[in-house]
Design a protein around this nucleic acid. Structure first.
Lengths: 222, 222, 222, 222
DNA sequence: CATGAATGAGACTTCATTCAT
DNA sequence: TATGAATGAAGTCTCATTCAT
């Protein structure tokens, strides 16, 4: 709970929460909803348990969210929007578009950035992954508004590096797919191994080898 | 493709053996349970809907499966076991261990094999993916009994090809991770694009490029 | 189960079972019905458990007994009838009516007789006691056909001894009530103490003191 | 009868204390649960009927009592505790220990007191009697916490009167058993005859004769 | 705004009973 | 006659949602 709270506090400052007016109770409700949904899945979670963990009465939830599903969406929809942020906001955009000289630096930055993001929003991402298959609206939202923009942005980057001549001449979407697959695979395994550093999982090395693998795979002479 | 045939027959035998003791109604129950679980998720599925789609009385479900959860497990547990089959059966083992001369042939066979498997069990795999996070027993089963064996088998193959000298000298587990990530990424995107063949997705080409990417990434001079 | 079976074997020989035709399965059904009803009570017993313990199929029960209630009655109704037997049959009747010279001998015989009876039919009596309140037919049967006859017989005995002059001149029904209360109290406590013989419960002594208490209470100078 | 009044008030206070926290609906649920359980037995009663008679929705029952069994226990457990009250409270204790001069007065008081108690709690006692055999916890509670204390108290009284010399020198437990048997027998028959006063059952006389019987049986010269 | 008792639809499950084999 | 799969009514219990306080 504390962990979730911390993240939330951060979110509160950064996002709409700061501008909108959320009562303290509402914040607590959201926090425990995230907690419970992530723990048991949306369908298996009961509003009464959420209320209990939030320390509010059952009815209070329905004062802020008309239905249980609205509560879910109030968690998941903003999360989807936030997924796109780094690709659109000054920070990431600026970096990718101009600064880095070589592609491996881009990969390194992306890995760093996504790991941080996942760590901070693990619970919400878990909920998102679980519920996406059952909510067409979310799927459409994710695909049209988010994925499209992300890919568009990434495409530009890839094309830029292809133009520099060392990268293989594949369709940019293919390159993006190969990069993302490999990176996500690295992050997934890393997550399973609990980010520990030992003989079984030498994170720094694995990351470098992963980047090297991609670079070689894309035709950069190593 | 002789090997693929062999697997197919073995799977058939196994499935038949199980279903021989099934009444027609029980088969129908299983089929609609898979259908409904895949469609709505386990927790959001009701036994009454499963019964309805199977064309049986609700009570009939509970004559064959003591609880709703037992029904789920009767679907998911065998699926987990089947996941391992191709890595353990003589057919596949023999092939991988000795027959193929170059690593890209191995990759090609694996891709073929897994695509076929996923196509045949898509619904069940969807259920499996959805439910794994909520059932520790399944997690343990998957990790200990299945994953361990699969990795062990794959490790042998990798080591054999590393010994031939053209492949980079990385930990075999790292190589396996990189291969699987890339292949799964290919299969995932392919699945989303619905296996269509058009300007957007030229499957034959994507597959070859994916294999080439891996081979290059692993140090084979292209 | 063995215990119950033994009793049943005896019953079989003695009662209608010998004349009627009971299949072996039917006997087993009755035996396990008695067992389960006594253990869980009629309403909380399931025909499926009875079938299971009897080692027959669920349907078999309903081939012999149209309903679950008929199965109950086939156990309980004969039991009620048997309750009266000792008061009507030659054995007991003869004894009470003529042989014994003093009332304490009558009491002693009754105690002996009832203890034996209860021991042999404990399960069935337990069922009877549990179910009597919920089945008017049984109540009527018990009251009219059984109790009336028993009391009638007992009344004669009491009157006979009253005529001998040492017993108080109370309504015979009052005397019967006092005797039965005291005797049942003795048997009840004895049953609780599990018929053990030790410092806590010296059965022989308790029985004699009980008889002495009744005799004194009824005016016999001790 | 001052003592009886005292008890009454104490009981009232205790009951009120419990019911003060009860909503009107909860009281109604309890009342109809007692009604239905007494009428049909616990296992044969349905929560839906209880709800119906109480004029509430079925779900309302489960808001107050987690399970049907908890509802039963909420009725039966306090009843067991109340059974002991008169034997432990100052009122009764004082009376028995010191005030009464002769044993028949004690008996008379006890009869009076228990008849009143039974009349007031007939339904609950019926439920208790029915369910005791199937709930080990209740058995233990009754035996350890209740019966032991009651017997201890009664023993003191008996010993006191034995010391006065007119009572037979039997183990006090034997004397208690004989008294209780006889009294319970009287109350039982009286209950069956519905407390009517006619030629068949002259209550005042039966009661006196019962007391006389006990007194004589215990050695008091009549 | 917040509460929490109340609701009633519907969830899972049990079980007496039927019937084709 | 015996079986046991199938039934469907009914049982216990859960839960999102409402509403008087």
């Amino acid at each position: 709970m504390t962990e979730t709270m911390e993240q939330w506090m951060e979110e509160l400052l950064k996002s709409e929460a700061a501008s909108e007016k959320m009562t303290e109770k509402q914040t607590k409700i959201l926090a425990s909803a995230i907690e419970v949904f992530a723990e048991k899945g949306y369908a298996a979670s009961s509003t009464s348990e959420i209320a209990q963990r939030a320390g509010v009465a059952e009815g209070t939830i329905f004062r802020h969210y008309k239905t249980k599903k609205e509560l879910l969406l109030s968690i998941v929809a903003p999360a989807i929007t936030k997924l796109i942020a780094p690709f659109v906001l000054r920070g990431f955009g600026k970096v990718l578009d101009s600064n880095y000289e070589s592609f491996d630096q881009v990969l390194r930055a992306m890995i760093e950035n996504r790991i941080e993001f996942i760590a901070k929003h693990r619970s919400i991402l878990k909920i998102l992954l679980q519920e996406i298959p059952f909510h067409t609206e979310l799927q459409v939202h994710l695909q049209k508004d988010i994925l499209a923009k992300v890919l568009e942005r990434l495409e530009k980057i890839v094309i830029k590096f292809q133009a520099q001549g060392q990268m293989v001449d594949l369709p940019s979407m293919t390159i993006i797919r190969l990069c993302i697959s490999t990176i996500m695979g690295y992050i997934a395994v890393r997550t399973i191994y609990g980010e520990r550093e030992d003989a079984v999982w030498d994170d720094a090395r694995e990351r470098e080898e992963t980047i090297t693998f991609i670079m070689r795979g894309l035709g950069y002479s190593s």
